[in-house]
C-alpha cells in the first residue's frame, strides 16, 4: 500500500509537523533550524491573537465571569429548576436520539454513495449538504409546513394517530435534518480511502461478505462514525432556528434549552440565561475535546493501517 492515504482535511494540521529533534528543556520559542525567513510573524500573530480575543475569547469569557458572580447555591437553584432540567433533558435527549438515527441512515447513505453506481447518485451526493447550506429558519418553516396536519407528510401521518408538528417528535425530525451531513461528510472520505485489496484478501482467504464487512471494513471506519456522531450531536444540542418553528415550545414538554435562554433573556433574567448558557457551553467544550481526541486517535489508527 502506498504510504500516506491522505489524512482527513479536518485534522491535517498537527500530524503534518515533521518530528523535530527532542527539544531541550525550556526550548526556545522558535526552533533554530525551523526559523522562517518570511516577514510578518509578529504582525500577523499579534493581529490573530487580538482579533480572536476581541471577537471570541473575551465575549465568551464575559459570559463565564457574569455567571461566576452568582453564588453556587443560586447557580444550583437555576440549573435544578424543573423547567431548566426539562429543557436540558429535551435538548440532550433528543439530540442523542437524532444523532443515533443519523448514524444508521448516514451509514446506509455513505455505503450507497461510495460503493454503488446508480442513476442520480451525484445529485444525491450534492443534496447531502443542503442542511449545511439552507438557512435554519427556512428549514424550520419548511419542516413545520410538511409535518403539519395538512402538510405533504403530516396528512398521511394523521390517520395513523402520529402528530409530529408541535410535539417533541417534531424537534427530533428537525435535529435529524440538520445532523445528517455531519455523519455523511465525516465518514464518506474515510470509506473512499479504504483499501479494497484488504477486502479481496479477506475474500480469497475464505471470509464471507458479512465477515469481511464486520472484521475488515468496520474497524477502519468506526472512529469516523464516532466523530460524525459527536459532531451531529454537538450541533443538535445548540440548534435553534430549525427547531423553534416545529417544536410547539411548550414549557417542560417541547421547550429546548437554547429557547429557554432566549426566553430568560427577554424576561431580563440574565442570571438564568447566563447560567444555562454556561452549562451548555461546558458540555459542548467537553464534546469538542472528545471529538479532537477521536480524530487524533483515528489518524493514529489509519496511519498504523498503512
Amino acid at each position: 500500500m502506498t504510504p500516506a492515504p491522505a489524512a482527513p482535511v479536518l485534522a491535517g494540521a498537527p500530524a503534518a509537523r515533521p518530528p523535530a529533534a527532542p527539544p531541550a528543556p525550556g526550548a526556545p520559542r522558535r526552533h533554530p533550524q525551523r526559523r522562517s525567513a518570511l516577514p510578518g510573524f509578529g504582525l500577523t500573530l499579534g493581529l490573530t491573537v487580538l482579533w480572536l480575543s476581541l471577537i471570541v475569547l473575551l465575549p465568551l469569557g464575559g459570559l463565564f465571569l457574569k455567571t461566576a458572580e452568582l453564588t453556587p447555591e443560586r447557580i444550583l437553584a437555576i440549573l435544578t429548576a424543573p423547567r431548566t432540567l426539562h429543557a436540558l433533558q429535551i435538548s440532550f435527549g433528543l439530540s442523542l436520539a437524532a444523532a443515533a438515527t443519523n448514524l444508521v441512515f448516514g451509514a446506509v447513505i455513505v455505503w450507497a454513495l461510495v460503493r454503488y453506481e446508480f442513476p442520480g447518485r451525484r445529485v444525491l451526493d450534492a443534496l447531502v449538504d443542503i442542511p449545511f447550506a439552507l438557512p435554519t429558519a427556512v428549514a424550520g418553516i419548511a419542516l413545520t409546513d410538511l409535518y403539519s396536519t395538512n402538510g405533504w407528510v403530516g396528512r398521511w401521518l394523521e390517520p395513523l394517530g402520529i402528530t409530529v408538528a408541535f410535539t417533541p417528535l417534531g424537534i427530533f425530525i428537525a435535529l435529524v435534518f440538520i445532523g445528517l451531513p455531519f455523519v455523511v461528510r465525516t465518514v464518506q472520505p474515510v470509506m473512499e480511502d479504504l483499501d479494497r485489496d484488504l477486502e479481496e484478501a479477506a475474500a480469497t482467504l475464505g471470509a464471507g461478505r458479512l465477515t469481511t464487512i464486520r472484521r475488515v471494513i468496520l474497524p477502519a471506519v468506526v472512529p469516523a462514525f464516532l466523530t460524525g456522531f459527536a459532531l451531529a450531536f454537538a450541533r443538535a444540542v445548540g440548534e435553534y432556528g430549525s427547531v423553534i418553528f416545529i417544536a410547539g415550545n411548550l414549557p417542560n414538554v417541547s421547550e429546548i434549552a437554547p429557547l429557554l435562554i432566549v426566553i430568560r433573556l427577554e424576561e431580563f433574567r440574565y442570571a438564568d440565561a447566563t447560567t444555562i448558557a454556561c452549562a451548555m457551553l461546558l458540555a459542548s467544550f467537553a464534546l469538542l475535546f472528545v471529538i479532537n481526541a477521536l480524530q487524533r486517535w483515528s489518524q493514529h489508527h489509519t496511519g498504523r493501517l498503512g
Partner: peptide, 15 residues
Amino acid sequence: FSVSPVIAGLVFVLL
C-alpha cells in the same frame, strides 16, 4: 463552531 448561535448572541448582549 461549537457554540450555540443563541449563546453567540447572548455574549454580545452581556457586553
